[in-house]
Simulated scan of single mutants.
Amino acid sequence: MKAGVFQSDGAGLSRADRLEMLEDAIAGQGLDLVVCPELFACGYHIGDELARLAETADGPFAQAVEALAVRTGTAVLYGYAERAGPHVFNAAQVIG
């Protein structure tokens, strides 16, 4: 298995920007798995935005990660703010 670690300064980036940076970094690397930072989907120190950006495990960001995983042939482990009813959790999932 060939694994990689992706680290970026995600402050102020949109979700599309985050995914574009990730895809640029892993494209052509032949990775089986890439590990992204905790809260990669929304970023840290975002205050009330955390609740607004939280989504379910099968939400839009997860769907975009799935498409990226298919395009690159790389499984992606990433952190995100997961919405479960009225609650928000610091979560991670692997797609691919």
Rank of each mutant, 00 (worst) to 15 (best):
R52K: 14
G85T: 06
L68C: 12
C42T: 13
A27E: 14
E66G: 12
T56E: 15
Y44C: 00
D58M: 01
C36A: 12
V70A: 10
V76M: 06
Q29W: 09
G73D: 08
V70I: 12
G47H: 09
E66T: 10
Y44D: 11
P60M: 02
E82K: 13
P60L: 09
R71M: 08
E55W: 09
G73V: 07
A84K: 13
E66W: 02
A75F: 07
A75Q: 01
P37L: 04
T74P: 06
F40M: 01
A84H: 09
Q63H: 03
G47K: 06
T56S: 12
L53H: 08
G85L: 04
V70Q: 12
G30W: 05
A57P: 08
G79I: 08
G79P: 08
A84Q: 14
P37Y: 01
Q29T: 10
I46H: 03
Q63E: 14
P60D: 15
G85D: 09
G43H: 03
G30H: 07
G30N: 04
P60A: 15
A81G: 11
L53M: 14
A62W: 06
Q29F: 01
E55F: 09
A51H: 13
L39T: 05
H45K: 12
D58A: 08
L77C: 11
A69R: 04
R52Y: 09
Y80D: 02
H45C: 03
A54H: 05
P37W: 01
D32S: 10
A81T: 03
V35F: 15
D32L: 00
C42I: 10
F61K: 04
A62S: 15
I46Y: 06
H45M: 11
L53D: 08
E82L: 11
A27R: 15
I46K: 05
A62M: 01
D48C: 00
A84G: 00
A69K: 03
G28T: 05
T74K: 05
A75P: 01
V76H: 03
E49G: 04
A62C: 03
V65S: 00
A81N: 01
L31W: 09
A54C: 05
C42L: 08
C42G: 12
G73H: 09
P37R: 06
A27P: 00
V76Y: 10
A69Y: 10
Y80L: 02
C36E: 00
V34M: 04
A27K: 14
A41C: 01
R52V: 13
C42E: 15
L39W: 06
Q63L: 11
L33G: 01
G30E: 04
R52L: 13
G47N: 12
T56H: 04
R83D: 07
L53Q: 15
Q29E: 15
V65M: 15
P60T: 10
I46A: 03
A69Q: 04
R71I: 09
G47L: 05
F61Y: 14
A67H: 02
L77P: 00
P60V: 09
T56R: 13
L33Q: 00
L50W: 12
R83K: 15
C36F: 06
Q29Y: 03
E38H: 14
